[in-house]
Simulated scan of single mutants.
Amino acid sequence: MNIAFLLFPNLTQLDLAGPAQVLSRLGGARLDLVWKTLDPVPTDAGFSILPTATFADVPAADILCVPGGLGINSVIADADALGWVRRVGEGAQWVTSVCTGSLILGAAGLLKGYRAGCHWGQIEQLRLFGAEPVSERTVVDRNRVTGGGVTAGIDFALHLTAMLRGEDHARLVQLSLEYDPQPPFASGSPAQADPATVDAYRRRVAKLVPNRDAELKALAERLGF
Rank of each mutant, 00 (worst) to 15 (best):
S176K: 10
L177M: 15
L177G: 08
E178V: 12
E178S: 08
Y179R: 08
Y179L: 06
D180E: 13
P181M: 09
P181C: 13
Q182G: 13
Q182H: 12
P183A: 11
P183V: 13
P184H: 08
P184E: 14
P184T: 15
F185Q: 11
A186E: 09
A186W: 01
S187Y: 01
G188R: 05
G188F: 05
S189R: 12
S189F: 12
S189E: 06
S189Q: 08
P190A: 12
A191N: 05
A191L: 09
A191I: 03
Q192N: 09
Q192S: 15
Q192I: 01
A193L: 03
A193F: 01
D194N: 09
D194T: 07
P195Q: 07
P195K: 11
P195E: 00
P195R: 09
P195G: 12
A196Q: 07
A196W: 01
A196T: 04
T197A: 07
T197P: 00
T197G: 06
T197V: 11
V198M: 11
V198N: 03
D199H: 05
Y201W: 06
R202D: 01
R202T: 05
R202P: 00
R203M: 02
R204M: 09
R204C: 04
R204H: 07
R204L: 10
R204P: 00
V205N: 01
V205P: 02
V205D: 00
V205R: 07
A206E: 11
L208E: 08
V209T: 15
V209A: 14
V209C: 12
V209P: 02
R212Q: 13
R212P: 00
D213C: 03
A214G: 10
A214L: 13
L216T: 04
K217T: 13
A218S: 08
L219H: 02
L219A: 08
A220P: 04
E221S: 15
E221D: 14
E221L: 15
E221N: 11
E221I: 07
